[in-house]
């Protein structure tokens, strides 16, 4: 464990609390892509299967349980409790275009041809692109509530912080995970446009609005 990873994970935790706060305080999931949230739940469930047969640490165990539980809870909130506030007509990204290629990539790139390792690879690739339905929705509506942009910023910061973590681990532990690093770089790159608007507008106190 190093500080980059710790702060990355904390940022990830923060993003989930911000999202829950947004849903509870506005009593609405307007502006949140159900598809992205469903993809994240899929990512956590397929990646953290090792909960059942591998012990890493109490930290690791607790975080994994939290991510699975919170992502399922968010799906419940969106699907049942605040269902009327979710508008599927603007959440139109075709997730099969993401799932298909991720299955193929996992079959091509993995560390071991076993069910858990294939699912692990799949989850890594899927996480890299899971934010796309959300960003697509943002692009379509052209604006976002400030609290939603804080959620996205915290999520993006989590991924960005994993990059110095890998550099640090390369030098201190001689450890490289090419699949996670490649997917992580792609994932972080997807946030660049968003970060630009977030830093130049939201953090200057303006509303998140994309130029027409």
């Amino acid at each position: 464990m190093n500080l980059f990873r710790l702060f990355g994970d904390l940022s990830h935790l923060a993003s989930i609390f911000i999202l829950l706060q947004k849903i509870q305080s506005t009593r609405s999931c307007r502006g949140i892509s159900f598809k992205t949230q469903a993809l994240y739940a899929t990512v956590f469930i397929t990646r953290y299967l090792d909960l059942f047969y591998e012990w890493v640490s109490l930290y690791n165990f607790t975080m994994k349980v939290f991510f699975i539980a919170s992502s399922c809870y968010i799906l419940y909130l969106m699907k049942y409790k605040y269902r009327p506030t979710h508008d599927p007509s603007i959440d139109t990204f075709r997730v099969e275009y993401l799932l298909g290629p991720c299955v193929v990539l996992a079959l091509l790139f993995h560390y071991k041809f076993s069910i858990p390792e294939l699912l692990w690879s799949f989850s890594i690739f899927l996480e890299a692109v899971a934010i796309l339905p959300q960003l697509f929705m943002l692009q379509r509506t052209g604006e976002a509530e400030t609290i939603t942009t804080h959620y996205l910023a915290a999520l993006g910061a989590y991924r960005a912080l994993y990059i110095p973590n890998w550099i640090y681990r390369y030098f201190t532990e001689d450890m490289v995970d090419p699949i996670a690093v490649t997917a992580g770089l792609v994932q972080t790159a997807l946030y660049l446009d968003f970060f630009y608007v977030y830093f130049t507008k939201v953090l200057q106190g303006q509303k998140f609005e994309l130029p027409a």
Partner: peptide, 10 residues
């Protein structure tokens, strides 16, 4: 030793 991904990461 098996080569596997960074399973200690989240």
């Amino acid at each position: 030793e098996e080569t596997t991904g960074a399973h200690d990461e989240l």
